[in-house]
Amino acid sequence: MHMADALVSPAVGGAMLATSAVLIGISARKVRENFDNSKIPLMGVMGAFVFAMQMINFTIPATGSSGHIGGGMMLAALLGAYPAFLVISAVLIIQALFFADGGLLALGANIFNMGFWTCFIAYPLVFLPIAKDFSSRTRIVLASVLSSIIGLQFGSFCVVLETLCSGVTELPFGVFAGLMQPIHFAIGAVEGALTAMLILFLREARPELFKAENSGRSVSFKAVCGYLALASFVIAGAISLLASEYPDGLEWSIGKIIKDGELGTGGKFYEALSLIQAKLSVFADYAVQGLGGTASSVIAGIAGVLIVALFIVLYANFLKKRHCER
């Protein structure tokens, strides 16, 4: 999953470097505030361990290809989100400098792809809620496998997006994603299994490594909301532009059945509802009326996210007040 410099444009490389720099700054601040200095050798050894693991390629059956683990999930499970992000960044810096595995300009992209999704999304949202206090074997295995798969899926998807946005490849999006995602699904499964094995062994041998207090494990609820909000805006405002223009499954099926492609409609009730919908739908067909082009879709997407978020917050507040009154 390491991107070379030759495959990124200055704009994409620069933007990802800036993004990763901000994340590194935040992680370093959190580590300085919360962290126990005696964990520094653990961080170093984990970095060396992940580095060594990344050098081991394993064959993915039926694909004819091989892959190596990312390691972000393993790091996060043992160190917590912020220290893990710093360690994976250090590993990638060494690889970029000394082994040309990943470029210098592409370093930001690699850190984001392999560090951000595992440490700040999969770990707090998937791994921690499932693994909880590391007491259940089944939970640990499930958490490790699921979170590794999810983290790597997002990471490999980002590789596809960054390469396409750089304008370096003519490979169609569908083909590129179709090749990357299944391979990294398999890699994620293997990494999840390895992570689970390591955690289970260390849980018996060194249980003090899993003490939650003072380990900087948790990521704040605000931070999680922030990431989800950011992800929503990016998906709604940018990635949605790559959506297929072809009809979805239902429309396609109907189109095959009905010759003129539209269902027949009639009746006063339907007409009344259609009128109401026509009046309410400010962003019909996910576009702003009277405004064409990309800007129209972007504004409609972002506005949609804001409206849904506002609705949920208001409804949640309403439920909370009702609960308090009782």
Binding site: G44, G47, A48, L86, V87, S89, I93, I94
Partner: peptide, 8 residues
């Protein structure tokens, strides 16, 4: 961490 990872 970069320096320590190399040493370790």
């Amino acid at each position: 961490q970069t320096v320590l990872t190399l040493r370790y």
